[in-house]
Protein backbone atom coordinates (compact mmCIF):
# COMPACT_ATOMS: atom_id res chain seq x y z
CA UNK A 1 0.00 0.00 0.00
CA UNK A 2 1.38 3.40 -1.03
CA UNK A 3 2.19 5.91 1.69
CA UNK A 4 -0.29 8.75 2.08
CA UNK A 5 0.79 11.95 0.34
CA UNK A 6 0.12 15.40 1.71
CA UNK A 7 -1.22 17.69 -1.02
CA UNK A 8 -0.11 21.21 -0.16
CA UNK A 9 -2.64 22.93 -2.42
CA UNK A 10 -5.48 20.96 -0.81
CA UNK A 11 -4.09 21.56 2.69
CA UNK A 12 -4.00 25.30 1.97
CA UNK A 13 -7.55 25.29 0.62
CA UNK A 14 -8.69 23.67 3.88
CA UNK A 15 -6.69 25.89 6.21
CA UNK A 16 -7.70 29.16 4.50
CA UNK A 17 -11.39 28.32 4.19
CA UNK A 18 -13.92 30.26 6.24
CA UNK A 19 -16.35 27.37 6.00
CA UNK A 20 -14.12 24.54 7.16
CA UNK A 21 -13.98 24.37 10.97
CA UNK A 22 -13.41 20.70 11.79
CA UNK A 23 -10.39 21.58 13.93
CA UNK A 24 -12.59 21.56 17.02
CA UNK A 25 -13.58 17.90 16.49
CA UNK A 26 -12.65 15.73 19.49
CA UNK A 27 -13.17 12.49 17.55
CA UNK A 28 -15.78 11.36 20.09
CA UNK A 29 -17.85 9.51 17.47
CA UNK A 30 -21.31 10.78 18.38
CA UNK A 31 -21.76 12.01 14.80
CA UNK A 32 -21.18 8.52 13.40
CA UNK A 33 -23.41 6.94 16.07
CA UNK A 34 -26.45 9.06 15.24
CA UNK A 35 -26.00 9.21 11.45
CA UNK A 36 -29.10 7.78 9.66
CA UNK A 37 -26.79 6.35 7.03
CA UNK A 38 -24.42 4.97 9.65
CA UNK A 39 -21.55 6.56 7.76
CA UNK A 40 -18.70 5.48 9.98
CA UNK A 41 -16.14 7.38 7.97
CA UNK A 42 -17.98 10.62 8.23
CA UNK A 43 -17.43 13.12 9.49
CA UNK A 44 -14.67 12.50 12.00
CA UNK A 45 -12.27 10.35 9.96
CA UNK A 46 -12.89 12.27 6.77
CA UNK A 47 -12.23 15.57 8.46
CA UNK A 48 -8.92 14.21 9.78
CA UNK A 49 -7.91 13.42 6.20
CA UNK A 50 -8.86 16.93 5.15
CA UNK A 51 -7.03 18.61 8.02
CA UNK A 52 -3.89 16.58 7.22
CA UNK A 53 -4.11 17.55 3.54
CA UNK A 54 -4.55 13.94 2.39
CA UNK A 55 -6.36 14.84 -0.80
CA UNK A 56 -6.30 11.37 -2.38
CA UNK A 57 -7.91 9.83 0.70
CA UNK A 58 -10.63 12.48 0.63
CA UNK A 59 -11.31 12.07 -3.10
CA UNK A 60 -11.57 8.30 -2.67
CA UNK A 61 -14.57 9.02 -0.48
CA UNK A 62 -16.39 11.20 -3.02
CA UNK A 63 -19.52 9.04 -2.99
CA UNK A 64 -19.59 9.04 0.82
CA UNK A 65 -19.30 12.83 0.84
CA UNK A 66 -22.25 13.13 -1.53
CA UNK A 67 -24.28 10.54 0.41
CA UNK A 68 -24.48 12.83 3.44
CA UNK A 69 -28.12 13.89 3.93
CA UNK A 70 -27.11 17.27 5.42
CA UNK A 71 -29.81 16.53 7.99
CA UNK A 72 -27.71 18.01 10.83
CA UNK A 73 -28.59 15.28 13.33
CA UNK A 74 -24.85 14.90 13.91
CA UNK A 75 -24.42 18.65 14.31
CA UNK A 76 -27.31 18.80 16.79
CA UNK A 77 -25.50 16.23 18.94
CA UNK A 78 -21.92 17.47 18.43
CA UNK A 79 -20.28 18.36 21.73
CA UNK A 80 -17.72 20.62 20.02
CA UNK A 81 -20.13 22.66 17.89
CA UNK A 82 -18.44 21.65 14.65
CA UNK A 83 -20.38 22.99 11.65
CA UNK A 84 -20.43 19.59 10.06
CA UNK A 85 -22.81 20.46 7.24
CA UNK A 86 -20.73 23.46 6.17
CA UNK A 87 -17.63 21.27 6.23
CA UNK A 88 -19.31 18.70 4.03
CA UNK A 89 -20.49 21.43 1.67
CA UNK A 90 -16.92 22.73 1.52
CA UNK A 91 -15.64 19.30 0.48
CA UNK A 92 -18.44 19.00 -2.11
CA UNK A 93 -17.43 22.37 -3.53
CA UNK A 94 -13.81 21.29 -3.68
CA UNK A 95 -14.72 18.05 -5.48
CA UNK A 96 -17.11 19.95 -7.75
CA UNK A 97 -14.24 22.19 -8.85
CA UNK A 98 -11.41 19.71 -8.96
CA UNK A 99 -13.14 16.54 -10.11
CA UNK A 100 -16.48 17.39 -11.72
CA UNK A 101 -15.37 20.62 -13.41
CA UNK A 102 -18.29 22.67 -12.10
CA UNK A 103 -18.42 26.39 -11.36
CA UNK A 104 -18.75 26.13 -7.63
CA UNK A 105 -17.39 29.63 -7.08
CA UNK A 106 -15.20 28.33 -4.26
CA UNK A 107 -12.81 31.04 -3.16
CA UNK A 108 -14.00 33.45 -5.87
CA UNK A 109 -16.19 35.45 -3.55
CA UNK A 110 -16.18 35.46 0.20
CA UNK A 111 -19.06 33.50 1.62
CA UNK A 112 -19.42 33.46 5.35
CA UNK A 113 -22.32 31.06 5.60
CA UNK A 114 -20.80 29.19 8.52
CA UNK A 115 -20.80 32.27 10.69
CA UNK A 116 -24.48 32.87 10.02
CA UNK A 117 -25.82 29.37 10.46
Amino acid sequence: MAASQVDMEFAEAVTTSDEFNAWACLNCGICSAVCPLAIDLMPRKLFRYAILGLKDEVLEETDTIFQCLLCKLCEENCTSNVHIVENVRFLRSYIGDEVFGLDTGRGREEHHAAAHR
Partner: peptide
Protein backbone atom coordinates in the same frame (compact mmCIF):
# COMPACT_ATOMS: atom_id res chain seq x y z
CA UNK B 1 -27.42 23.67 -5.83
CA UNK B 2 -26.73 24.81 -2.28
CA UNK B 3 -26.76 21.24 -0.98
CA UNK B 4 -24.35 20.18 -3.72
CA UNK B 5 -21.94 23.00 -2.80
CA UNK B 6 -22.24 24.67 -6.22
CA UNK B 7 -22.18 28.15 -4.75
CA UNK B 8 -20.97 29.99 -7.88
CA UNK B 9 -24.03 29.01 -9.89
CA UNK B 10 -26.25 29.46 -6.85
CA UNK B 11 -24.96 32.97 -6.17
Amino acid sequence: AYDMGVDGTLR
